[in-house]
């Protein structure tokens, strides 16, 4: 796993994909989980005129002191849900950063030898976990497993809180998908 502890303390991750892939939601869960662990967080979405489709990306900053700019040009983490996002943002990741690639949709190497690149078959793992739509949480799991940016329990709690109420039926499959992502990068010993 990542050994640079400075990276673990304060980090930023850009999650990017098609609209509808749940990138904003996964980002919100990460921010919520980090907040509950007492960290400072910000969640800044890109927004455009279209309501559906197009690209959607969000930058989540996690820090131990108040966050300056919520806008980060060179983040330390990237979760790329589709090829356009990988092509656009992979070159911008800071050296030593972490890039999680959605292997289900992307058949391309980001060519960042100076970063940790993790390819995850998110769709397949999500299907095994009970819902193909939870691929976003598989990706988040892989990122959290690789970086330890936040505890697994905090994310699971945040997923449960996000879907509390009339969306409670999504909790089990989302949590299972998230765990599948974590275990894909750090298998249980």
């Amino acid at each position: 796993m990542i050994t640079d502890t400075a990276t673990l303390m304060d980090t930023e991750v850009l999650m990017a994909g098609f609209g509808g892939q749940g990138t904003l939601l996964a980002g919100k869960v990460l921010a919520q989980a980090s907040m509950e662990e007492g960290r400072e967080v910000s969640w800044l979405p890109s927004y455009g005129p279209e309501m559906r489709g197009g690209t959607a990306n969000v930058i989540v900053c996690i820090a131990s002191k108040p966050i300056g700019s919520p806008l980060i040009e060179h983040p330390r983490g990237l979760i790329a849900m589709n090829l356009p996002s990988l092509e656009k943002f992979a070159p911008k990741v800071k050296p030593g950063g972490v890039i999680v690639v959605n292997q289900s949709l992307i058949d391309k190497d980001p060519r960042r030898d100076d970063c940790v690149v993790i390819s995850v078959p998110s769709r397949e793992l999500a299907q095994q976990a009970g819902s193909a739509r939870a691929a976003n949480f598989v990706m988040l799991g892989a990122y959290v497993g690789a970086t330890g940016a936040v505890s697994v329990e905090a994310v699971e709690h945040a997923i449960a809180a996000e879907f509390a109420g009339d969306k409670a039926r999504f909790i089990a499959s989302s949590v299972a998908a998230f765990r599948a992502g974590v275990e894909a990068v750090c298998p249980r010993s």
Binding site: K28, A31, M35, E40, V41, S42, W43, L44, P45, Y47, I67, P70, L71
Partner: peptide, 10 residues
């Protein structure tokens, strides 16, 4: 500005 409006923070 639009960033403050659209951004989530604790």
């Amino acid at each position: 500005d639009g960033m403050i409006g659209q951004m989530m923070e604790p």
